[in-house]
């Protein structure tokens, strides 16, 4: 199948990419751009591991065709802190740091999506209740933690960001 060129602004960098129509945004970001922080859990919109922010909106990138994202601004987990270890100023995003400090991470597979969802929630609502956090993260599944520490981490991140 012939490819077409799309333009994405990914984490502040303009990218021109040749994509097949059937490539999802998730596949394109992982395979063409080699940004492998975002994960594919289900591929059907149910688990949230592939969550990215597209033009300011949290989406499941496994259900968005790359071609549909043509011309958009995309933020992935890599965009929160430029290196996997720490940002340019040597610091992680407060949500990332809160997840570490709280011990909210076990296998880690769901965490990039959790953090993108948590950041989206806190940007819109800096003072969330526990129920707000549950609602904001309802589209993100974790098979390890039982969620308690994840919710704690998000509430702790809210404190840090105020």
């Amino acid at each position: 199948m012939s490819k077409q060129i799309i333009t994405l602004n990914v984490n502040g960098e303009r990218q021109e990419i040749a994509v097949e129509p059937r490539w999802t945004l998730l596949y394109t970001v992982r395979e063409a751009l080699r940004l492998t922080g975002s994960k594919e859990g289900c591929g059907t919109g149910d688990c949230g591991a592939c969550s990215m922010i597209v033009d300011g909106r949290l989406v499941t990138s496994c259900l968005m065709l790359a071609a549909q994202a043509d011309g958009t601004e995309v933020t992935t987990i890599e965009g929160l802190a430029p290196s996997p270890v720490a940002g340019a100023d040597g610091r992680l995003h407060p949500v990332q740091q809160a997840f570490i400090d709280t011990g909210a991470v076990q296998c880690g597979f769901c965490i990039p999506g959790m953090i993108m969802a948590a950041k989206t929630l806190l940007d819109a609502n800096p003072n969330p209740t526990l129920d707000d956090v549950r609602l904001g993260l309802a589209g993100n599944l974790c098979r390890c933690t039982g969620y308690t520490k994840i919710y704690e981490a998000v509430l702790s991140a809210a404190d840090r960001m105020r």
Binding site: G48, S51, L58, T60, M64
Partner: peptide
């Protein structure tokens, strides 16, 4: 409808 992510799409 679904989650935050679903409702955005």
């Amino acid at each position: 409808v679904g989650s935050v992510q679903t409702m955005n799409m």
